[in-house]
Amino acid sequence: MKTGDLIRALSADADFRPASPRRALRQALAPAIAIALALYFAILGVRPHLLALLGENPRLVFKLALTFLLAALSARLILRLARPGADTRAVALLLALAPALLVAADLVESLTVPAAEWGRQLIGHNAVSCLASIPLLAAAPLVAALLALRHGAPEHPALAGAGAGLFAGAVGAALYATHCPDDSPFFVTAWYGLAIAFVAAVGALVGARLLRW
């Protein structure tokens, strides 16, 4: 088969139009979020008086806002990573905002909370639950994001997989944040950070194989 022949076959296949990564992500995410929500309500459930607490607890507001910001920005990042030749630097820089904000919050916390309390804030009451729940809630969104990225053409499969893990971890963290009563930025940095990093590492490992094209 000569190249001209191949081109003839390719243009005969022009009617077949695969879904863009964005549409694929949207489609895959709907059932994945449903699964995560079902797990959430089955195992964890909403923290009592969540809405009332929002008005009086800035730490809670920050925790929720940060996880939602991370989810939104990492979704943008993976859609960029899925497109060859697309500029990812701007989104990656924007994404660095999330850890920067968290470090800033840690600083504020260290100034407002007495040093003797730091250890208690860091360990909290739910470290183990946090480490287990976030990856569990993130599992279905991770599968969805990886499947959607298969519609894309990531130049760096492991990186795109890590991005998918970051996104899924952030979705899991955002859900978990509405359950867990530990609101200190110290707790969020240590345990949310660890849990999300774990999901990102899994994403990178799977992505390195699954996202090759």
Partner: peptide, 25 residues
């Protein structure tokens, strides 16, 4: 490359320039 261009053409956005996309592939 032609196969990849064909199978991954959904990753090109109508508003984006064509040649960076092509050369990345």
């Amino acid at each position: 490359i032609l196969l990849a261009v064909h199978l991954k053409r959904q990753t090109w956005e109508k508003t984006a320039p064509f040649s960076p996309w092509l050369w990345a592939i």
